[in-house]
Amino acid sequence: NQASVVANQLIPINTALTLVMMRSEVVTPVGIPAEDIPRLVGMQVNRAVPLGTTLMPDMVKGYA
């Protein structure tokens, strides 16, 4: 099963992502693939992302 990117903490709206904010986990539904974590660093979320939430492509500005 493919691992997805999951929020390791509450990520406030418009926050630029850092490695410490994300972890990989096998979840359903599948979100952004864990191998894209390096690409996500520095990108901003367009909404608040609660701890444990799977990051979906539409949550990250410029990802989709």
Score class of each variant (00 low, 15 high):
residue 29 P to H: 10
residue 53 T to R: 13
residue 29 P to N: 08
residue 27 V to T: 15
residue 36 D to Y: 06
residue 31 G to W: 03
residue 34 A to D: 08
residue 2 Q to W: 05
residue 30 V to D: 05
residue 50 P to E: 07
residue 25 E to N: 11
residue 35 E to R: 15
residue 58 D to P: 05
residue 48 A to W: 09
residue 59 M to K: 03
residue 12 P to C: 02
residue 3 A to E: 06
residue 7 A to R: 00
residue 12 P to L: 14
residue 61 K to V: 12
residue 64 A to Y: 05
residue 20 V to T: 14
residue 13 I to F: 12
residue 44 Q to L: 07
residue 45 V to C: 02
residue 28 T to E: 12
residue 49 V to F: 04
residue 53 T to W: 14
residue 53 T to N: 09
residue 14 N to C: 02
residue 2 Q to I: 09
residue 15 T to C: 02
residue 4 S to C: 02
residue 58 D to E: 05
residue 56 M to C: 02
residue 37 I to C: 02
residue 56 M to H: 14
residue 13 I to V: 10
residue 21 M to R: 04
residue 8 N to I: 05
residue 11 I to N: 00
residue 42 G to T: 07
residue 44 Q to K: 10
residue 17 L to E: 00
residue 4 S to R: 03
residue 32 I to E: 01
residue 61 K to F: 10
residue 43 M to D: 14
residue 26 V to C: 03
residue 8 N to D: 04
residue 5 V to I: 14
residue 52 G to W: 10
residue 2 Q to K: 10
residue 44 Q to T: 10
residue 45 V to R: 00
residue 23 R to P: 01
residue 46 N to Q: 13
residue 9 Q to R: 05
residue 40 L to F: 04
residue 26 V to K: 15
residue 38 P to G: 05
residue 24 S to L: 13
residue 54 T to G: 06
residue 31 G to N: 01
residue 41 V to W: 07
residue 42 G to R: 06
residue 6 V to M: 05
residue 53 T to E: 15
residue 55 L to G: 00
residue 4 S to A: 13
residue 8 N to V: 15
residue 20 V to A: 12
residue 29 P to R: 03
residue 46 N to R: 13
residue 17 L to A: 01
residue 52 G to S: 12
residue 42 G to N: 08
residue 31 G to F: 02
residue 19 L to D: 03
residue 15 T to D: 05
residue 26 V to L: 07
residue 33 P to N: 09
residue 61 K to L: 07
residue 30 V to C: 03
residue 52 G to R: 08
residue 27 V to E: 04
residue 45 V to N: 05
residue 55 L to C: 01
residue 32 I to Y: 03
residue 60 V to A: 03
residue 23 R to Y: 13
residue 54 T to W: 03
residue 50 P to D: 12
residue 59 M to Y: 07
residue 4 S to Q: 04
residue 28 T to I: 11
residue 16 A to E: 04
residue 36 D to R: 11
residue 48 A to H: 10
residue 9 Q to I: 14
residue 18 T to H: 06
residue 31 G to A: 07
residue 36 D to A: 04
residue 6 V to W: 03
residue 16 A to F: 05
residue 41 V to D: 06
residue 37 I to E: 05
residue 2 Q to S: 06
